[in-house]
Design a binder for these strands. Sequence first.
DNA 1: TTTT
DNA 2: TTTT
Lengths: 158, 158, 158, 158
Amino acid sequence: MRGVNKVILIGNLGRDPDVQFLEGNIAVAKFSLATTETFKDRAGKLISQTEWHTVVLWRGLAELAQKYLHKGSLVYIEGRLRTRSWEDKEGNKKFATEVVGDNLVMLDKRMDVGNGDHAVHHGSGSSTSGQQGPGHHGEGYPGIEIPPMGEAADDLPF
Amino acid sequence: MRGVNKVILIGNLGRDPDVQFLEGNIAVAKFSLATTETFKDRAGKLISQTEWHTVVLWRGLAELAQKYLHKGSLVYIEGRLRTRSWEDKEGNKKFATEVVGDNLVMLDKRMDVGNGDHAVHHGSGSSTSGQQGPGHHGEGYPGIEIPPMGEAADDLPF
Amino acid sequence: MRGVNKVILIGNLGRDPDVQFLEGNIAVAKFSLATTETFKDRAGKLISQTEWHTVVLWRGLAELAQKYLHKGSLVYIEGRLRTRSWEDKEGNKKFATEVVGDNLVMLDKRMDVGNGDHAVHHGSGSSTSGQQGPGHHGEGYPGIEIPPMGEAADDLPF
Amino acid sequence: MRGVNKVILIGNLGRDPDVQFLEGNIAVAKFSLATTETFKDRAGKLISQTEWHTVVLWRGLAELAQKYLHKGSLVYIEGRLRTRSWEDKEGNKKFATEVVGDNLVMLDKRMDVGNGDHAVHHGSGSSTSGQQGPGHHGEGYPGIEIPPMGEAADDLPF
DNA sequence: TTTT
DNA sequence: TTTT
């Protein structure tokens, strides 16, 4: 490939995620994310600028969103841009650009009850259910940062 | 700020850039960029997926685009997402998501005559033409990667 | 330029930042940042892997670090890699790779007293003191995300 | 996880990659990559700054490096930082920071004979198990850009 | 040396 | 529609 299509966002959810399940029990989550950047203009005035993004998560990440994200949650999203187009009932061509997330980091301070273990989430759009036992859809999110086997071994031959 | 809105693209221009000049002689360039990613699906079949992005460049970067970019050019673009909305003449709400570029790297092999110096371009959304004398639009693009003064001095006190 | 050198980190400070002031009252901050990634290995076991980074901030960002960051702070850092080398007193060649930050986002939930205004920080390595009045070293850091003038004007000619 | 450790580089190889095979026929490639950034300093002088990085690739990516990369190749590398430490024979503590690549894009203009199909490479920690020897350790690395199954289906329920 |  |  000679292409790169990467988006990195940190922002807050405008509403609770909308999660649905497709055939095959595949979860899809969708939510709006506000990224606010503040800077001084040349006059030195503080300017705050909010941009809204539509984020789509699949499978394991969608399930995490359903469990742990809600209106106001602060998250880091890494993904790619995808523009879909369709015609509405009046025949008008419509476009929507979304960020399809491959990685999710929850940045809210956890003040949870419990052990907080669930706070450790990460994953990627790329699920590998094929490797998993029966019934295990939506678990085990091998993610972007999974190091290749053998790497841990500190026996680099250099 | 607690927000991040960052896009990184590598792809080819679908057409020559469309460059216009606003009042104040401010250049704005716009072009479509195709990012193609190729991967194997689970069946091992090679799949190629092209996504089209609208890229907008301002000022110095727009002028670089005008001078050096054309249909087919391979570029690295770093920028941020921005969605604009408006109503068309029929009163339909329309949305368009664009990538506003803060940095541009030309990746084509230069087979240029001459010194190739012009090949070295970079810049950022944060132009500072205000500092420049009259007539000097489009010069001196202090960019993202401009190191702070004094840094070169290798006298880090640690 | 045909190069890109970019680092993006989210992690926690291992200690309070070490801040020093060089000639000209230029601030330099240095701290260790731990990025911890957790994933499941192929056996399904949760594995946590921490990497330590040396982060260096200059000028305005260094001053922000001094004021607001401390041991444990969660931050987003965007910057570039820089490797320095020197010889120690025994004449051994030493190398140290650091992340020179161009952008800083504080991700801790603020439970501060006060207005929280100080929470809005951002900046970049690229200072522009030249534009500023006398005596104003270290202020007004127009940063990476400063939109070019005129952009706010929603009069894109396309 | 609450951590992110990401590096993005575009630069040229300083030498041909050094590729070795570990037990299990696991390929590891290592090379130096120069990222050169050019900018104008405050006096307007063009300054060029080259940084050298050590890049390590594993498995499928290492094999691609062996086949297609050589001294001078222009590449995009996405990966993470990793610092290793050890003691040399004199008992001095040594550190080396490397970029472990998860994704590789070859940016050289292909003037190849043939179809150039091999030019389309990408990967991530994630390889293409078909290339691997017997024993099949190290299979099925779902990679950064592999879209989740079902996503192609344009039947988003929103 | 951090954090969950 | 979020957050500071």
